[in-house]
């Protein structure tokens, strides 16, 4: 297997927020760069750019990953969900809960935290405890809130999604 000396741009086909897309990307671009600078999806934030902060968290095949550490070419044939993908006819319970709890201050970490929380809550399928929520969000930094209201919001959203006291 050899690669051509000048690869140019690669055409990458994947499912983006449920819709098939094909986009030409330079081989050395990250998924984060493809989302923000080719697809104009700027909800995903560019923070530390080296996997420390979690601001760029998206879902790859349903799992929360830092998009700054995924090559754009690596998502060929896979499913990517960004914070824009949680839009629907009604407000997503996580968005609603973040609003009610005033869980966003500057808001820069919020899209990444929402994506990490959504992946965890969906997999858990029952109301989350505070400790579980904190462990699930251990890869997402927030420099404003002190996390208290973020955890309030995630716990409240999980009760809306999966029924308080159920499961």
């Amino acid at each position: 297997m050899t690669t051509p000396p000048d690869q140019g741009e690669l055409t990458v086909r994947f499912l983006l927020n449920g819709e098939p897309v094909a986009v030409a990307v330079p081989p050395h671009w990250t998924l984060l760069e493809v989302l923000r600078y080719r697809l104009d999806l700027i909800g995903t934030k560019q923070g530390c750019d080296k996997g420390d902060c979690g601001a760029c968290t998206v879902q790859l095949d349903g799992k929360a990953v830092p998009s700054c550490l995924v090559l754009g070419s690596a998502v060929d044939g896979r499913a990517v969900t960004t914070v824009e993908g949680l839009r629907g006819p009604t407000l997503h319970p996580l968005f609603d809960a973040f609003d009610h709890a005033v869980a966003a201050q500057c808001g820069f970490c919020t899209p990444g935290i929402v994506m990490a929380a959504e992946a965890y809550l969906r997999r858990l399928g029952r109301p989350v405890t505070r400790a579980e929520a904190a462990a699930a969000l251990a890869g997402n930094l927030c420099r404003c809130t002190g996390y208290t209201k973020i955890l309030d919001a995630v716990v409240a959203a999980s009760e809306r999604l999966h029924g308080a006291g159920g499961g």
């Binding site: 297997m1 690669t3 671009w29 690596a74």
Partner: peptide, 22 residues
């Protein structure tokens, strides 16, 4: 903002292809 340096990518699907690419 931290950019990656330029490189090409290979996406082998078998161990033999990967060893050849390496």
């Amino acid at each position: 903002m931290l950019r990656l340096p330029g490189f090409r990518v290979a996406s082998p699907t078998t161990i033999a292809e990967a060893v050849a690419a390496l």
